[in-house]
Write a protein that binds this DNA or RNA. Sequence first.
DNA 1: TTCTATTTGCGAATCGTTCGCAAAAGATAC
DNA 2: GTATCTTTTGCGAACGATTCGCAAATAGAA
Lengths: 131, 131
Amino acid sequence: MTKARTHVLEAVSSASEPLSARQLCDLFRDDHDQATIYRALHYLEGKGSVESFILHCDCHGTERYYVARAGAHRHWFHCERCHRFTDLGPCRFDDLIGNVSAEKRLAIRSHTFYATGLCGACQNSEVDATH
Amino acid sequence: MTKARTHVLEAVSSASEPLSARQLCDLFRDDHDQATIYRALHYLEGKGSVESFILHCDCHGTERYYVARAGAHRHWFHCERCHRFTDLGPCRFDDLIGNVSAEKRLAIRSHTFYATGLCGACQNSEVDATH
DNA sequence: TTCTATTTGCGAATCGTTCGCAAAAGATAC
DNA sequence: GTATCTTTTGCGAACGATTCGCAAATAGAA
């Protein structure tokens, strides 16, 4: 593993939320070019060390977010107000996906899920706020 | 409703699969500018007439796909080989989403799900194919 | 029908991401 | 450790999808 790939994997693995390519580019602004970051992410995803999903939010636009692939497949919630992610825990959709793939005769290889709305903290502050 | 918006809504409503902005631009190449198509889609989505999701496929890149909002929220499967969509039917995730939002104290306002893999037809042709 | 607000077409700009190429860094054999 | 070959990197330019700004065209209200 090269230095760039090691740096990117460490950053994604130690993060508590999905990180966007942009965040990683910012993080390593002085050390690596953005093309290198993108290439490292592709390499790591091909190797199975990280996985990603595309999410749009008003604040950050449409970006791909990366998480380390450790243990079970997980899904995430994204708060529309504070733009932080909440871990929804290990995937609970396996049974439903098994059912639907059998019904429709599909060989489902992967799936993407995420939820958006307001996190606990932001629900409270919305109540207070007068806007 | 203006002509452009009517055309776009009719196209999305009568399609049997999600349509990308690009497909709609191609379809109305002679009648409407692409900016108009995009603006019509935003308008219709804001009004609740259509909904969309972002999906990446090797063949068509990263694009937003639009479906009419008629009846229950639905999810889609996308075949990696023929790039056609299969309707997975009405959303079956409501209970699971209700559980997880209660557990994590989240106000989930929307969710996105899609699955990818091989459709029935493409599973068969993969068996035959020698590549 | 006239007036006003809204929408459209056009071209250029933007954003996230990827490319091509020459230089730098790794890996391999001696 | 050095020569050699392969892979990766940095840079800048290009790319595809989408959005912008503005003047002209159209829709809707009076």
